[in-house]
Amino acid sequence: MEVPEERSGARRRGRTTLLIAGAAVLGVVAGGCAGYLIQADREPTKLPSLSQPTLAQAREPAPEPLSAAQDRRVKTDGDLRKLLLKKPAGTKTAAWLSSVDGWLSLPAYADTYVKPGEAFGDAISGEFRRAASVGWTKGQADFEVRLTQFRQEETLAASDVTSGDQYWAADESATRSWTLPGTENGMVYVHDKPDTKPGYLPQYYAEAHAWRGDIVVDVWVYDTKPVPKKTIMDLAERQMERL
């Protein structure tokens, strides 16, 4: 994963804060010296009595903790699989899924990329935490929804990974794209040119990529006929609503 400019900017902000703090310390030292010289020329000032009236303490109730519905971290720190869309009734569980019992291991996650070795290293440096996916088949169409969560203690991997996915999706020829409603930067893509191989039916596909907090949302639809915008958009919107 190439380090984006935003990450470098976040690290530089820490250094700027450090320089400003150093300047403040120098200002305090200089001001203290000047104050000492002025005070040395003045007559002593009588100190007030140590006995002071008791001040009444404000008694306000402590704020109520956020409920599980309001605190997003309660939701996303739980079972990630429960946040996935449910397999629609009347569809078949996808036999091609790499996940086991809904969980996608780090090696399996990396293996979904063109260069698994590089993807594995990128996931480690990006503080990969866990991933879960669900998939189903309906007729000739295949569907997959994946959630990938990062620790984000040192890097903002969720936004970086999403930006990379969007870059490659937009780079495909004969591609139409739309913003994903309800998100700041989620995108939906429909590829109108199918993949073709001798002996195989043509394969059309559509995809959506977005992120929220520390979670990346990926949605794919594959079919032997063009994928309608409504199909991929509806799946992506419903998945984002669950986060």
Rank of each mutant, 00 (worst) to 15 (best):
K46E: 14
K46W: 09
L47Y: 04
L47I: 02
L47W: 08
P48Q: 09
S49Y: 06
S49P: 01
S49E: 15
S49T: 12
L50S: 11
L50G: 15
L50M: 13
S51F: 13
Q52V: 14
Q52T: 12
P53G: 02
P53N: 10
P53Q: 02
T54C: 00
T54Q: 11
T54V: 13
L55N: 03
L55R: 09
L55Y: 08
L55P: 02
L55G: 14
L55H: 03
A56V: 14
A56F: 05
Q57W: 03
Q57P: 01
Q57G: 05
A58S: 14
A58W: 13
A58V: 12
R59W: 09
E60S: 06
E60P: 00
E60M: 12
E60C: 06
P61A: 15
P61M: 06
P61F: 01
P61L: 08
A62V: 03
A62K: 14
P63V: 00
P63Y: 00
P63C: 04
E64T: 00
E64Q: 14
P65C: 09
P65D: 07
P65M: 06
L66G: 12
L66K: 09
L66F: 09
S67G: 15
S67R: 12
S67L: 04
S67N: 13
A68M: 05
A68I: 01
A69W: 04
A69M: 04
Q70W: 05
Q70Y: 06
Q70V: 04
Q70I: 04
Q70E: 15
Q70P: 01
Q70R: 15
D71H: 09
D71L: 13
D71E: 12
D71C: 08
D71G: 05
R72P: 00
R72A: 07
R72D: 01
R73L: 15
R73F: 11
V74S: 13
K75H: 09
K75F: 02
T76D: 04
D77Q: 07
D77P: 00
G78S: 10
G78F: 03
G78E: 03
G78A: 15
G78N: 05
